[in-house]
């Protein structure tokens, strides 16, 4: 079992299926957990964040650090919010799926890294992003764009943290269809992954075992991205 005792984890989008599984895994591994969302089971603290508001994220991370003493692991699961074709996607729809997917992930990552730097040495940021970040899907123009945006922002953040020598590593888990998450138009033969399997991969990144990995994306997709 991975050991995260004495660590504080923050889970964004904690009301999602993946978020809930991560909260329970992180808590089982001994971490104190703060969630953005309603109090997910096993969490020590819940904060309310208007996810498009930079100040709200700052305040959420501050409350986490003040109350639980630190910020060591930040998990940012992004759920797909649209699965529409070119014809169905108005400019407004495109913008709104960025607002609901990419913007909260960017803000949580960026404000989270800054907060992590104030709370002590090192840390692990783990994004969970639809595999649409690395594969086109027929009928998901906006979700693919937003997912890819988050993935490459995470790689950029990994390089920036490395250069700053702040000890923070930034990685991503890429997921295919996940039970309980909003669906994307994956090919029919791609089987759904249980949220717990995603949480297990998140836990791998969150522990000291992955200290030499940064800017890496790990597919938990049953082989979908392999071809």
């Amino acid at each position: 079992m991975s050991d995260l005792s004495n660590k504080v984890a923050f889970v964004a989008n904690a009301d999602s299926a993946i978020g809930r599984a991560c909260v329970s895994s992180l808590a089982s591994a001994g971490a104190k957990v703060c969630v953005a969302g309603a109090a997910a089971q096993g969490a020590d603290l819940a904060v309310d964040v208007n996810s498009g508001d930079s100040d709200a994220w700052d305040s959420a991370f501050n409350i986490c650090i003040e109350t639980l003493g630190s910020l060591d692991v930040l998990v940012i699961p992004t759920s797909a919010t649209s699965a529409t074709s070119i014809e169905e996607t108005s400019f407004q729809d495109f913008v709104s799926s960025h607002r609901s997917m990419a913007v909260p992930a960017f803000l949580a990552q960026n404000r989270g890294i800054l907060a992590m730097r104030t709370s002590g040495p090192g840390g692990a940021v783990v994004h969970v992003i639809p595999a649409a970040a690395r594969s086109g899907l027929d009928g998901a123009v906006a979700a693919c764009a937003a997912s890819a945006g988050i993935l490459f922002s995470s790689k950029s953040a990994a390089l920036e943290c490395a250069k700053a020598k702040d000890g923070i590593v930034v990685n991503a888990v890429l997921v295919g269809p996940v039970a309980g998450e909003p669906p994307l138009p994956y090919p029919e033969h791609v089987t759904a992954v249980p949220p717990q399997a995603v949480a297990d991969a998140v836990l791998f990144y969150a522990t000291d075992g992955a200290v030499y990995m940064s800017g890496m994306d790990l597919p938990v997709d049953g082989g979908f991205l392999a071809g």
Partner: peptide, 22 residues
């Protein structure tokens, strides 16, 4: 078994070398 749904992945344990232009 923690990686039970991980297959076909190219995993880099490389200190971030493949992350970008660095």
């Amino acid at each position: 078994d923690a990686a039970r749904h991980v297959s076909g992945a190219a995993v880099c344990v490389d200190g971030g070398r493949m992350a970008g232009e660095y």
